[in-house]
């Protein structure tokens, strides 16, 4: 839930909000999600806050740090709390699928009559508020991740793309699945499926620069229609995380279509150069023969 757009009837410390004039911050650096065999292990840093009144309420046990985790696909919803500003908890992998969202907050553990905050905007001066258990006193921000994505293997093309046999006349790119699906006509698929072709590493530059590159261009040109698909989320994650790709992504998580050929080449690790190097080697080998 995006609490940034909510106007509270009492002062709440939020980033980019002036109801309380104090420091609070939260970014991707403050989130650590480490998958183990059967768990997602979370470590969330909520230490970037500077407001004496709220911190005192935590010390006295009247409020606490909270991370609410939500997953619409599995109806998972749970709040994890702590008196420490670094919250660590685990969630079974069998409880999450697709997009998982988290909200980081400070919440009242008990009723706090006559609450005011010395750093609140002057409009609140002289007012006292009757805070109830469960009321939100500070909002750091939110985060999300895709439970089905193996982030460590994202650089492998197979994490976002697969080649299948289809009832098609020509190669078809289907973007409607969680992986970009390249459907080959039955006869072509038979040839592709031969181990000497599909499993032969030396041929990957040829595949990447022709079939895969073409399919990725199609996917990127139509990206905005498929942002809920895992392949799109995986690409978006790489664009947010990798230095070479960051520059292409705007604040609205969109990119310029004119940049698509460059983005596709970076995502595939420069397939054209790899192809040319491969051809160069082939020529050398032929010359030697």
């Amino acid at each position: 839930m995006n609490y940034n757009n909510i106007k509270f009837p009492y002062p709440v410390l939020k980033k980019n909000d002036n109801s309380i004039l104090s420091y609070i911050d939260f970014s991707n650096e403050d989130i650590e999600i480490t998958p183990s065999y059967d768990l997602f292990n979370f470590k969330i840093n909520l230490s970037k806050i500077d407001n004496d009144d709220i911190l005192k309420l935590i010390e006295t046990g009247k409020t606490e740090y909270c991370v609410e985790v939500n997953c619409s696909s599995t109806l998972f919803r749970k709040v994890h709390t702590s008196r420490e500003n670094i919250i660590e908890f685990s969630i079974p992998k069998l409880s999450l699928r697709g997009k998982v969202e988290g909200d980081c907050l400070i919440i009242a553990r008990e009723n706090i009559p006559d609450y005011n905050n010395s750093q609140a905007h002057e409009d609140y001066q002289g007012f006292y508020f009757n805070i109830k258990r469960g009321n939100i006193l500070a909002y750091y921000g939110s985060f999300n991740f895709i439970a089905d994505i193996n982030y460590k293997k994202l650089k492998a093309v197979a994490s976002i793309m697969e080649i299948t046999e289809g009832d098609v006349e020509y190669l078809n790119v289907d973007l409607d699945n969680n992986k970009i699906t390249l459907q080959l006509p039955k006869q072509d698929f038979k040839i592709y499926a031969q181990p000497l072709i599909s499993k032969y590493p030396d041929l990957s530059p040829i595949f990447h620069s022709s079939i895969v590159y073409g399919a990725l261009l199609t996917a990127l040109y139509n990206f905005e229609n498929y942002t809920d698909k895992l392949w799109a989320q995986a690409i978006l994650y790489r664009m947010k995380e990798e230095e070479e790709l960051k520059k292409f992504l705007g604040n609205d998580e969109k990119f310029d279509k004119a940049e698509v050929p460059d983005i596709a080449q970076i995502l595939l690790g420069n397939p054209v150069r790899r192809l040319l190097n491969h051809l160069d080697k082939e020529i050398e080998t032929t010359d030697e023969e």
Partner: peptide
């Protein structure tokens, strides 16, 4: 009410 209260934080009595 969920606009100001974190509903996942509170129990049935709330």
């Amino acid at each position: 009410i969920g606009g100001t209260v974190n509903l996942a934080y509170v129990d049935r009595t709330f």
